[in-house]
């Protein structure tokens, strides 16, 4: 464990909690892409199947359980409890255009052609593009609630910190995982546009609004 991975995980946890609290407190999921949340639930489900088969550490197990529970709770709030506030008209990204390439890539490019390994690879590739429906929805509505931008900031920051974690592990531990690094780079690059808007607008107290 290193400082980048720890702060990365805490940033990820913060993002997940911020979103859950936003929906719960405002009793509304306006501006939130349910499709992205379903994809994240799928990412955690396919990545943490080893939750019961291999014990790495208490921290690892506890965090995995929290991520999975929060992911499904968020999906439930969006499509169940607060369905009336779900903005389906703007959440129209065609997720099959993500799932099909990701499945093909996971089957073709992986560390080992074994079920658990392919599921993990699928989860890594899917996570790198899972935010696209959310970013697409914001570009369609032309704006985002400030709390939603904080959610996105911490979510983007987490994988950015993981990139530093992988540099650290390569340098100090000789570890290198090309699949995780490349997917993590793609994931972080997708946030660049948002990071720019977040830093130049939201941090200056303005509302995040895109030139529609």
């Amino acid at each position: 464990m290193n400082i980048f991975r720890l702060t990365g995980d805490l940033s990820h946890l913060a993002a997940i909690i911020i979103l859950l609290l936003k929906i719960w407190k405002t009793r509304s999921c306006a501006g939130i892409s349910g499709k992205s949340q379903i994809l994240f639930a799928l990412v955690f489900t396919t990545r943490y199947l080893d939750l019961f088969s291999s014990f790495i550490s208490l921290y690892n197990t506890v965090m995995k359980v929290i991520y999975i529970m929060c992911a499904y709770a968020t999906v439930y709030l969006i499509y169940g409890k607060f369905k009336a506030t779900y903005d389906g008209n703007h959440d129209t990204f065609r997720v099959e255009f993500l799932l099909i390439p990701v499945v093909l890539l996971a089957v073709l490019i992986n560390h080992a052609f074994a079920p658990m390994e392919i599921l993990w690879t699928f989860s890594i590739y899917l996570e790198s593009v899972a935010i696209l429906p959310q970013l697409f929805m914001i570009s369609k509505t032309g704006e985002a609630e400030t709390i939603t931008t904080h959610y996105l900031f911490f979510l983007g920051l987490y994988r950015t910190l993981y990139l530093f974690n992988w540099i650290w592990r390569f340098y100090f531990e000789g570890f290198f995982d090309l699949i995780a690094v490349v997917a993590g780079l793609v994931q972080t690059i997708l946030y660049c546009d948002f990071f720019y808007l977040y830093i130049t607008k939201v941090l200056k107290g303005k509302k995040l609004s895109l030139p529609a």
């Binding site: 991975r5 995980d9 990820h12 291999s54 790495i56 550490s57 690892n60 965090m63 995995k64 991520y67 490019i109 992986n110 560390h111 080992a112 390994e117 993990w120 993981y162 974690n165 992988w166 592990r169 570890f175 290198f176 995982d177 090309l178 699949i179 995780a180």
Partner: peptide, 10 residues
């Protein structure tokens, strides 16, 4: 593509 080294990561 080498061995997956990030088994302990979330």
């Amino acid at each position: 593509l080498g061995q997956r080294s990030t088994k302990d990561e979330l």
